[in-house]
């Protein structure tokens, strides 16, 4: 999954994609960098996607970083919660590369419209 997301994002022009294997790794990486985009699964052991999202929104650095959450079809409640917590978009597994590419482009452009400045892209799970 991560490899697929990475490949798709790299195809879409994100030059610097960082992977985190789980919620912990993401927590470790997030405070140190600004990112153009975060893609995270909701269902992860220990630190899950919603927690990660809430963590980001509480921090100064990532209060407005675009986040795409990924979940399975039957996790509708979790998805709604994610959107309420401030996710910018969601994708339902399985999704095709085009859907990710399109969504990524949309949320990143929306963000750029608000402010400017480029940084590395990022993948999480």
């Amino acid at each position: 999954m991560r490899a697929f997301v990475r490949a798709t994002l790299e195809d879409s022009g994100f030059a610097d994609v960082t992977e985190a294997a789980n919620g912990f790794e993401a927590l470790r990486l997030l405070p140190r960098e600004r990112y153009d985009l975060v893609v995270t699964d909701i269902n992860m052991p220990d630190i899950h996607g919603l927690e990660l999202l809430s963590f980001m929104r509480k921090s100064d650095v990532h209060a407005t970083t675009p986040v795409i959450i990924v979940s399975t079809e039957n996790a509708q409640r979790d998805r709604e919660r994610g959107m309420a917590l401030g996710a910018n978009a969601y994708l339902t597994k399985p999704f095709d590369p085009e859907a990710l590419r399109e969504t990524a482009r949309r949320v990143v452009e929306a963000r750029r419209a608000e402010e400017s400045g480029a940084g590395p892209g990022r993948v999480d799970k």
């Binding site: 909701i42 269902n43 899950h48 919603l50 927690e51 999202l53 809430s54 996790a75 409640r77 979790d78 919660r81 309420a84 917590l85």
Partner: peptide, 9 residues
């Protein structure tokens, strides 16, 4: 809500 809103189902 800051806690309940972050719980998964």
């Amino acid at each position: 809500e800051n806690v309940l809103g972050v719980l998964t189902e």
